[in-house]
Structure formats: C-alpha cells, structure tokens
Amino acid sequence: MNPFAQKKIFLEALQALRLKKKPKETATKTDASVCPSCKESFSKNALEKSLFVCPDCGHHFSISAQTRLDMLLDAKSVRFLNRRLQGGNPLNFPSYEAKLAALRSETGIYEAVVTAVGKIGGVKVVVCVLDSRFLMGSMGTAVGEKITRAVEYATHARLPIIIFSASGGARMQEGILSLFQMAKTAAALERHADAGLLYISFLTHPTTGGVTASFASLGDVILAEPRALIGFAGPRVIEQTIRQTLPDGFQRSEYLLEHGFVDAIIPRGEMREAISRLLALHGRTTA
C-alpha cells in the first residue's frame, strides 16, 4: 500500500479518536486478519483505522517499525539514521547471512531496529523502534550499534530519545558480542542522562531477555502498551525451572505496573498524545 495513504488513514484515525468519533466504515472484505485474542476477523482496512488494535477486544497487534513511526511522527518529518548499517557473522553461524538476507528483502529493513530523527507535534526527537519481524527484534552488534549511535546523536544534538522495544533479547547468533551490546547501550544512555536529557522507554509486546535487562529498563519514564509480555526470563524457561504453571497475567504490562516497574499503560490510540505531553513537560519553561 502507498505509505502516504496509510499515514493519512492513521492520522484520520487519531483525529477520530480525539473527537471520540467512529471512523468511517469503508471496509472491504479482502485480506482479512483474525484477532489472535478474540478470534474475530477484520479487514486490513478496518484494522488500519483502529491503529491495528482489535476493535472488539482491544488486543494490540504487533506492528512494523515503519508503521509505528507513521503513527508517531509528524508528516514528512522523519529522517533515518544509519539506515543501511549491518552486522557480520562473528560466530560463522551456519546460514545466518542467508537468513538475514531473506529477512531484509521480506521486511524492507536492514536490521531489527529502525532509528530516526523526527518531530512529534513540532518537537524534535530521536526515535528507535525495534521490529519483531526481524529475528524477534533480537539485539546483535548492528542493533546495539544503531541504538548507541542514535543515543549519542541525541546527546550531541541535545534531543530527547524514545525507544520502542519489541524483542526476544540478545541475539544468539552473534554470541557474546550480543551480550555486550547490553552494556554498550546502557553506557550510552548514562551519558545522555548526564546531559540532563529525557529518555522515554516504550515497552511493546514482547520485551524480554537482554533488552529488558538493559536499555528498556532505564527510561526516565517507562510506558507500556496494554497486555504486552515484559520480563527478563521467558515464561517457558520459568515454568521449566520452577515446574509450576504461571499465574494468569504474569509478566504482562498490568503486572509490571502493579509491581512498580512501569509508569503508565498507554493504549496505541493515546500514544502520540501521551508522548507529546511528556515532551512538553520536559520542555523549557515559557513563563
């Protein structure tokens, strides 16, 4: 689909949400998507209008990094950073390069994170968005490097940074080098913090492992989409370790809010406005 047309749909949908109006129904029955939560089926068009949130049960569908940026940033304000940066194959892991090449042509992005400068309601920000279609949004050297460079850019240009996480954690195929990206990104964010700048960490489904145990947990403000799985150890690993079934709602956004690890749960329809307000609250006083 034409990206401008899609962006227009998002902006209209956001406008409609603000006015508490139902968006126009022009649904076509072609390429229907089934909600994994309530099993209701919807046309792609209807889902786009609801920002890929199930109109029936409120389930937040996973969305691509590009779709997220389209929903978040002012029209035509985006400028990508290090768009083509790629990693290598430090372990010589069998068929890793072929897998990456296939994902690149499938998703149209070079790695599991997209980093950009853009504007939200006229306020300039640096944004990183992990894309779960790309090897579960896992962090290898390229993802760590892109995020670090984005943070360094924000520090240098004195801009706020917003990171949307959606990741299985450190990328196995790059071994120990993936693990150290956790330290590298955390260290870059400390320098950003020292400069007195704002970091908003936005957790989306799923955020686990080495991403939860590094940059995702270090925001001045930590927001989460409803019902997102957020944790360090994955639920299966925990079940195998303790040999018990996990309680319902365990490691979901609401559970983290209750336990004091996120500031607020923000449905997708309120994302742009919530971030706008936070940016305003961290702006210079105009008294």
Partner: peptide, 26 residues
C-alpha cells in the same frame, strides 16, 4: 545466569541487571 523465577520477575530482575550495567559504566 540470573535466576528465572516468579519472585525474581516480580521484583524486577531486568531492571536490577540493567541498573548494574548502567552504574558500572559510570
């Protein structure tokens, strides 16, 4: 490795490790 358990998650295993990394870096 860090303990994968219910209480560890409830008390913020990810945050605890992340803060260690951030602190050691500075």
């Amino acid at each position: 490795g860090a303990y994968p358990g219910i209480e560890a998650e409830a008390r913020g295993q990810g945050e605890a490790i992340a803060s260690c990394l951030a602190l050691m870096s500075r």
